[in-house]
C-alpha cells in the first residue's frame, strides 16, 4: 500500500483554504442558525419545558443542534469539494496525479474533520451565549464529532461523485438528512415518544448519532454509547469501502 503524505497534505491544505475563502459564510451561517434555534426553542419554548433526563431543556438540545448543523455542513461541503472539480474539469489534475484513494481521502476527510471541529467550537461558543452547560466527557465529544464529521465527509464525497446536477447535490441533505435529524431526537428524547413511535424512531440511524453525542455531553442517552459508536464506525467503514470501489472502477470519475 502506497501512501504519499505530501499529496495528502496538498489536498488537505487546499480544502482548508477553500473553507477559509468563504470563511465569512461558513462561520456566519451556523452562528445565525444556531442562535435562531436557541432563541425559539431554547429561550421562548424551552422556558416552559421540563428538564429532560435531569438536563435543562436549553442545554438538552445543544448536541442535537450541533449534530444538525454538523451533518448538513459536512455533507454539503464534502460533496461540493469533489463535485465542483468534476463540474469545472479541474479534476483532471487529481486523476492524472500519482495519487490513490488513500491520499485523496486523507486530504478530503482530514480537512472535513478539522472543519467539523471548528464548526462545533463555533456552535458551542454561540450556545454559551444562551444557556449554561458543561460537557461531561470533552475528549469523547471531540472524538465523536471528528468521527461523525469524517463519516459524513465520506458520505458527501460519494454524493458529490454520484450527483450529475446541482439539484441532486442538494436533494439528499435537504430531503433525507435534515428530516432524519429533526426526527432523530434533536428536540426531544425518543424515550419520551409514545409506543410504538419510540421503537419506530430507532429505525432512524441519526437517532443513534444524536444520542451518542448527547451521552458525551451529559452522560445520558437513549441508546448505549457503544451502540452509537459502533454504528458510526460501521458507517465510516461502509463509506470508505464504497469510495475504494468507486476509485477502483473509476465510476463517474474516469470515462
Amino acid at each position: 500500500m502506497h501512501f504519499n503524505p505530501r499529496s495528502a497534505f496538498a489536498i488537505y491544505q487546499r480544502e482548508m483554504a477553500r473553507a477559509f475563502r468563504t470563511a465569512f459564510q461558513s462561520i456566519l451561517a451556523p452562528v445565525l442558525t444556531t442562535s435562531l434555534y436557541f432563541v425559539v426553542f431554547g429561550s421562548v419554548i424551552g422556558a416552559r419545558m421540563e428538564p429532560v433526563g435531569g438536563v435543562p431543556y436549553g442545554a438538552f438540545i445543544i448536541p442535537g443542534l450541533l449534530m444538525l448543523t454538523l451533518l448538513g455542513e459536512t455533507t454539503s461541503n464534502a460533496s461540493f469539494g469533489i463535485y465542483m472539480p468534476r463540474f469545472t474539469g479541474t479534476i483532471y489534475e487529481l486523476l492524472s496525479a500519482p495519487v490513490g484513494v488513500a491520499e485523496t481521502l486523507a486530504g478530503f476527510v482530514g480537512a472535513a474533520a478539522t472543519k467539523g471541529l471548528i464548526l462545533a467550537a463555533i456552535i458551542l461558543a454561540t450556545a454559551r451565549l444562551f444557556v449554561d452547560y458543561e460537557i461531561a466527557y470533552p475528549l469523547l465529544a471531540a472524538v465523536y464529532i471528528m468521527l461523525v464529521a469524517s463519516s459524513f465527509a465520506l458520505f458527501g464525497f460519494i454524493l458529490g461523485i454520484w450527483a450529475d446536477s446541482f439539484e441532486k447535490l442538494g436533494i439528499i441533505p435537504m430531503l433525507i438528512l435534515t428530516p432524519l435529524t429533526f426526527l432523530g431526537g434533536t428536540f426531544y428524547s425518543i424515550r419520551d415518544l409514545p409506543a410504538p413511535w419510540d421503537a419506530v424512531a430507532l429505525v432512524n440511524p441519526i437517532a443513534f448519532l444524536v444520542s451518542g453525542l448527547r451521552f458525551s455531553f451529559y452522560g445520558v442517552a437513549d441508546v448505549p454509547i457503544a451502540v452509537s459508536l459502533g454504528l458510526t464506525l460501521g458507517f465510516l467503514g461502509l463509506c470508505t469501502v464504497i469510495i475504494a470501489v468507486i476509485f477502483r472502477t473509476g465510476w463517474r470519475l474516469r470515462e
Partner: peptide, 30 residues
C-alpha cells in the same frame, strides 16, 4: 508525466502561486 489539458479548467478563485504550489504538492514533490 505532466498534462496540460485542452479545456481551460482552472480553480478560478485560487491565486496563480497557490495553484502551482498545489500541483507541486499533489504530485508528491516537496
Amino acid at each position: 508525466i505532466g498534462l496540460v489539458p485542452q479545456e481551460l479548467a482552472t480553480d478560478m478563485f485560487e491565486t496563480v502561486w497557490r495553484a502551482v504550489a498545489y500541483s507541486q504538492g499533489l504530485f508528491g514533490k516537496p
